[in-house]
């Protein structure tokens, strides 16, 4: 026990950024699998997908797209504010991002609610009785893909919550920005996936 070394805390912002990018690859592949399934069934049921897509509310979809795009901007601005050592601005921008994400989820809730009222949900008798197989598949994929995306929004909220708490506490600051930067990267991913989901479900008819 005579000899003792000082173990300095290992901090490698570059390493954690690589780690985050690798994780983003896995997320892209996760959704990639779903995009493959979507394209196969779209190819096999082109007409039914066209018909079903007209059921979706493009206005709400477009609104949510705008909300996510703005939230991506505000989290990027928040990262920049952190680099410039403007703690108050960082926190405000992060809170705005957080609120925008919540608004997205509220919109999604009402959008899904309307569908449920019309008898459109996975496994519903109405769909089996009234809709073609292609339309059933379209809505099955719609709920899976937007649902999984909504789960990612929730995960993003949790990560942002952590980042917010750590910025307030002062453990995330200009010299140790990794957590906020990675939260930003993750949030851009969530945004990016929506940028693909929106046209695939709402716009291509």
């Amino acid at each position: 026990m005579s000899q003792v070394i000082h173990h300095d805390e290992h901090y490698d912002p570059e390493g954690s950024k690589i780690g985050m990018w690798l994780f983003i690859f896995t997320e892209l592949l996760l959704f990639g699998g779903l995009f493959i399934v979507y394209s196969v069934y779209r190819y096999m049921n082109a007409d039914a997908f066209h018909l079903a897509a007209e059921e979706l509310n493009t206005t709400v979809g477009a609104l949510n797209t705008v909300i996510l795009l703005i939230s991506s901007m505000t989290i990027a601005m928040s990262t920049t504010a952190l680099q410039k050592k403007q703690k108050a601005t960082t926190i405000v921008l992060l809170e705005i991002t957080f609120m925008l994400a919540l608004i997205f989820l509220v919109n999604k809730y009402f959008e899904w609610g309307v569908k449920f009222d019309h008898g459109i949900f996975p496994g519903s008798e109405f769909m089996k009785a009234e809709m073609s197989q292609g339309e059933v598949l379209f809505f099955g994929l719609y709920f899976v893909m937007t649902g999984l995306h909504a789960l990612h929004i929730v995960a993003g909220l949790v990560i942002m919550g952590f980042a917010l708490a750590r910025v307030q506490k002062g453990t995330v600051h200009a010299d140790r920005p990794s957590l906020l930067e990675n939260a930003g990267l993750y949030w851009h991913l969530v945004d990016l996936i929506w940028i693909f989901l929106f046209p695939l479900f709402y716009l291509i008819t």
Binding site: L22, T26, L29, V144
Partner: peptide, 24 residues
């Protein structure tokens, strides 16, 4: 890293198929 997510989503789809009958 690059292959496991695919089986991940596939298993999720099977599970959802079992629970909700999404049809894929």
């Amino acid at each position: 890293l690059l292959a496991t997510p695919i089986v991940g989503i596939t298993l999720v789809l099977v599970a959802l198929e079992r629970i909700f009958g999404i049809g894929v």
